[in-house]
Amino acid sequence: MTSMPVESPPKRATLRHRLFRTLSGEYFWLYLLLLPSLLILVAVILIPMLFAFQMSLGNTSIVVLGGRGTISNQWVGLQNYLSLLQNPIFWQALRETLYFWVVSIFIEVTVGIGMAVLMNQSFFGRRIFRVIVFIPWAIPTVVNAMLWGMIFDGDNFGALNDLLLQWHVIQSPIVWLNPSALFPQIPWLSNALSYLGSNLAMNSIIVGDEWKTLPIVAILVLAGLQTIPHEYYEAARVEGASAWRQFRQITLPLIAPVLTVVLILRTMQLMRAFTLIFTLEQFGLPVLSIQAYQQAFSFGSFGMGSAVSFLIGLIALVIAYFYIKRLYREEL
């Protein structure tokens, strides 16, 4: 009589075994090579972000005790966020930030794609043109701010005023960097635009910012355009598709992934735009990033400053989500 061998149930792998298998298996080198990058990301992004979030939930101030500086953080929960949401100055800053973003993105999508389409055509001197177009992007932001400060100077010797005065377009210099209301002769329109965050200084700054950032948008879109096979357009032409239909049904869907990346990147940059605005206006145009800086570094209220920063991040995240949902998934 032989006894049937009884199959013992498979032993459940312990955590140690699983970890060992993972690290020693085919992924060993993968994890090893990723480790330095992961450590850097944790050290310079994750930990500071968690620390900033903790500060945003506290009444944070700098104190020097016994000759040693430190940051004291008294837990207040969501108080900083609630105070912000109840403050009309925050809402005005939010409207100004959103205006800055909407107008800038509109210019970038329309003019940026137009520039990219133009640079994608064959014409004499195309390479030189592409290099020239890219130059503004290479200029440091502070230098760009100083440059536009001189162009927009409100005295007679401001470059733009000088030009417009010489051409008799204007009778007296315009103070381009003064956040004055637009169309003051039409009160309802002036008030509505001011409420939405639009004023002379804001629009002047958008021009200065776009001059610098349009090239990178155009170059990225151009990279997307160059991946579209010519055969698609040839086939469309054979079918009798108009230029607009070719653009709408071939170009736009195929550059959608690049456009998504560009839009997300630019939204993040526009939401936290600081250097140009602060250099030219200091606290005169209090968009959210200026408010965050002022709260933290002028008023010493790091908790409130962190709360503003997290709200900026949250808004950018929501916008990015809609970009991905609308452009990336549907079109591919």
Binding site: I62, V64, R68, T70, Y293, A296, S298, G300
Partner: peptide, 17 residues
Amino acid sequence: YPQLHSAILTSAAAPVA
């Protein structure tokens, strides 16, 4: 000048100035 105050503040937050 506009950066002096914030530089002093962040320096004060460090254990050693």
